[in-house]
Design a protein around this nucleic acid. Sequence first.
DNA 1: GCCCCTATCTATAAGTG
DNA 2: TCACTTATAGATAGGGG
Lengths: 207, 207
Amino acid sequence: MVRSRGRPSLGRQRIEIRRIDNSGRRQVTFSKRRNGLFKKASELSTLCGASVAVVAFSSAGNVFAFGQPTVDAVLRRFDPLHADAEAPAPAAVEDGGDDVVVADPEELDALRRAEEQTKAQVAAEQARMRDVGDKVTQAMAGSPLWWEADVEALGEAELPEFVRALERLRDSVRRHASTLPSTASPAPAPAEQEEEVPELDVSDYSF
Amino acid sequence: MVRSRGRPSLGRQRIEIRRIDNSGRRQVTFSKRRNGLFKKASELSTLCGASVAVVAFSSAGNVFAFGQPTVDAVLRRFDPLHADAEAPAPAAVEDGGDDVVVADPEELDALRRAEEQTKAQVAAEQARMRDVGDKVTQAMAGSPLWWEADVEALGEAELPEFVRALERLRDSVRRHASTLPSTASPAPAPAEQEEEVPELDVSDYSF
DNA sequence: GCCCCTATCTATAAGTG
DNA sequence: TCACTTATAGATAGGGG
């Protein structure tokens, strides 16, 4: 009841465009703005029939991407990596206004149906597989505990990379999980299950 | 002169998020929003210390790109060794194409965005895992890229368990890492710019 | 992390030069 | 194409659950 009298909120405040010091706040902002950016990209693509790809690495090293029609499709088309010259060779400079691109409402509707179909499949699969532990073990069967032996073979140069890759994979899996219907089992979380990676000092690698 | 009495302008009007029919208007919108998108990307990068790349093809075929620190830097990091990858066509859904739109365009747009985002992330993870995998795979030859198939095969119920398995693996790797000599090689902090982003055409930063 | 809320701030549609 | 204006639609900071 701190705000019994005044306004319930000060509303949006103006901020300077420079690195946000507070880590938590920075992460929240990253999330919000990343979504906003993806939405803008999506709208640009829909409104103007453009192909757009956005790739963002958080300072923690997580990757996020959006693409229309697909990130890969756009990047392949862009492809300054493999191609040599700057010659863009954009081709058709004229826009008759009837290009066959973009998402027509029908396409979106189809996507929506596809989504529901996927959900249904997952739901069915979920009902069928009640035994979690066994399923996972089975998924990794064939090479049980392969890492315990193989990790020893890795050089020190690969280890930090490997650790971070695993963490990204972990987060990816979590995000994937949150996409599925009914977030039933949020994982008991026996002990530590945080995020971020302050341990390794590889705070911002690149290669 | 028509503006004789009322307001000099009606101000911004609301528009539906769907392809703009008028070619000229669409072009104007593309310019404005493209700049807005780049600005947002720039702000995200500055505020959160993120690496961001945006590539956009106008329906006319012209390319525009923005990147922090550089487009190619981000794309290389994102798409390390994409070459040997399979080309998973969007798959998606086929639609008769004769159905009438039923759902709200905005809603579908958001839905499509969410789906694309998820798929893009999965693709990104797989791409990165392939890269790390190139080094790691040798160490664990015999179980090639087991996760690529398994992650997708897992249902919602199994995911939390899988996440924990990954964390155990991570810790295992870390323990091993701690037994090795120092592994420090922090990358130099990238210069940050909050400035405006003119408009980067391929011809401006040709490789 | 997610959603919701409010009060603002910011991007931008439309129009003009 | 750009620049500038106006007035409003949309994005989002801050805070709570």
